[in-house]
Design a protein around this nucleic acid. Structure first.
Length: 439
RNA sequence: GCUCCUGUCGUCUAGCCUGGCCCAGGACACCGCCCUUUCACGGCGGCGACACGGGUUCAAAUCCCGUCGGGAGCGCCA
């Protein structure tokens, strides 16, 4: 029976490196039908906080991870560690050492080399003479990491320890502790660390690293999940999978051992694909949240204008890579207070014929019975033909006048969603818009 | 300094265990073309890597040795 754990210390936010470790443990447990245990390593009272614990749990949930049993808090198990330390002293595997007035318990490293077979790295051997006697119990009676980890992993019946490479050199110490406690050690698998572009361990100075920050940016949980799961590992031909598919394909060995560099453009690519695949209905609450945050939300979008708003989301989702992207792009549709890109105005509104052409187009549009993409397109193209000009001239001008941008979804779909009233109003604003940029 | 881990396109990786199908495959990014009203999508194409040096072998990205590079750990932090 496979039993693994994720053991964060609540001294900071859920970092994507830690999240990746959590994902691997979870995947391993689910693949083998085992258990995934959460253990909060909060024995460093100075730096730990309940708030951080909440944030970490929220991050895990958001990623779609669930855990078995209740989370275990090390702060509530101090007595157990102290007992085990005493037991080791009794067995003469550990001893009291005093430096100054304080008295701590140190492990007596025996004169035997440590060998173990890492599931990812293969055989690793360390000579015991390279390991110093390390502290088990601090002079204040609190356990150190090595003691609490080993005692808990034994107590919780952990079968596989999957964690970051930064723990490789801790492992021999812990194996020695298992031996001293008379328990055979579990399997170990050490996963490479995520690096920044400078090939150093990823940290805050590299930019966004907290899982919750990605959520705020408008990254979908499944996108981050896929991206993180596919570091050091290649599940196959498709580039994006459901959680269930990844569980099915997951394996630990035979994976890349080098440290991967975090590349946000790939994450965003996955995210964009996932956004396109979602329905407007699914996207609705996410877009709402972003608009609310930017102070652009209108209650009507949820009530009488909801069907219209869903159409808008459907129009915009194909080319959005982050949920954030929706706010700028939706702006001209839900408000009259939007910017005109000066480059766009200069490029597409400078033709002198435009004033007259747009006036005629205005008339063509205003007599349309149905303000839908197809008739709109027909009207514009036949106008262009009559005038002997390329349709593109009016198309580009219309885009700039209606949206203020050079880039958008197909213009006729845009106009349809924009509606007759606003479209005509904005086409009529040609003079003032084109003039304003000349100053 | 000591110990351990690690090194395939700019980036993520496949291949390495079980040498030949690899003058190295895919994806992201980038560039070009097609589609086209713009962008995105899609299609097609391009750029681009086995860190280096020896050895073993008919044959090495794959096995062996060495060199160099990168990282992490060495706390009464976790």
């Amino acid at each position: 029976m496979v039993r693994v754990r994720f053991a964060p210390s609540p001294t900071g936010h859920l970092h994507i490196g830690a999240a990746r470790t959590a994902i691997y443990n979870w995947l391993f447990a689910r693949h083998h039908g085992g258990s995934f245990i959460l253990r909060i390593e909060d024995t460093d009272f100075e730096r730990s906080s309940e708030e951080m614990t909440e944030g970490i749990l929220a991050g895990l949930k958001w990623l779609g991870l669930d855990w078995d049993d209740k989370p275990v808090f090390q702060s509530q198990r101090i007595k157990l560690y102290q007992e085990k330390a005493a037991e080791l002293v009794k067995k003469r595997a550990a001893y009291y050492c005093s430096e100054g007035r304080s008295k701590a318990v140190r492990f007596k490293v025996p004169d035997e080399d440590v060998f173990y077979k890492d599931l990812i790295h293969g055989p690793i051997t360390v000579k015991s003479k390279n390991i110093e006697d390390f502290v088990l119990l601090r002079s204040n009676g609190l356990p150190t990491y090595h003691l609490s980890v080993v005692v808990d992993d034994i107590d919780l019946g952990i079968t596989h320890i999957i964690r970051g490479d930064d723990h490789i050199s801790n492992t021999p110490k812990q194996i020695l502790l298992y031996r001293a406690l008379g328990v055979s050690p579990p399997e170990f698998a050490h996963q490479s660390l995520i690096f920044g572009p400078d090939k150093k361990k990823l940290s805050k100075r590299h930019g966004v690293t907290s899982v919750l920050q990605f959520r705020e940016m408008g990254i979908l949980p499944l996108a981050l999940f896929n991206y993180l799961a596919q570091m050091s590992w290649d599940p196959g031909k498709e580039r994006i999978y459901s959680r269930g598919e990844i569980i099915e394909k997951f394996y630990l060995d035979k994976r890349s051992q080098g440290s991967p560099v975090f590349d946000i453009s790939k994450l965003e690519w996955i995210n964009g694909r996932l956004i396109s695949d979602k329905s407007a209905e699914e996207l609705f609450p996410l877009v709402k949240a972003v608009l609310q945050e930017k102070g652009l939300w209108q209650q009507a979008l949820e009530t009488e204008k909801r069907p219209w708003f869903l159409k808008l989301i459907g129009l915009l989702k194909e080319r959005s890579r982050k949920i954030e992207d929706f706010s700028d792009r939706a702006l001209p549709f839900i408000s009259d207070d939007f910017p005109y890109e000066s480059k766009a105005v200069k490029k597409h509104l400078k033709d002198e014929r435009l004033g007259e052409l747009l006036a005629r187009l205005y008339d063509d549009f205003s007599v349309l019975e149905s303000f839908k993409a197809l008739p709109l397109e027909k009207a514009l193209r036949s106008r262009a033909e009559k005038e002997g000009i390329k349709p593109a001239l009016m198309i580009h001008a219309a885009r700039v006048l209606v949206l203020g941008t050079r880039v958008s979804p197909g213009i006729f779909d845009v106009l349809e969603v924009m509606g007759k009233e606003k479209t005509l109003e904005r086409l009529a604003a040609f003079d003032s818009v084109s003039k304003s940029s000349k100053q």
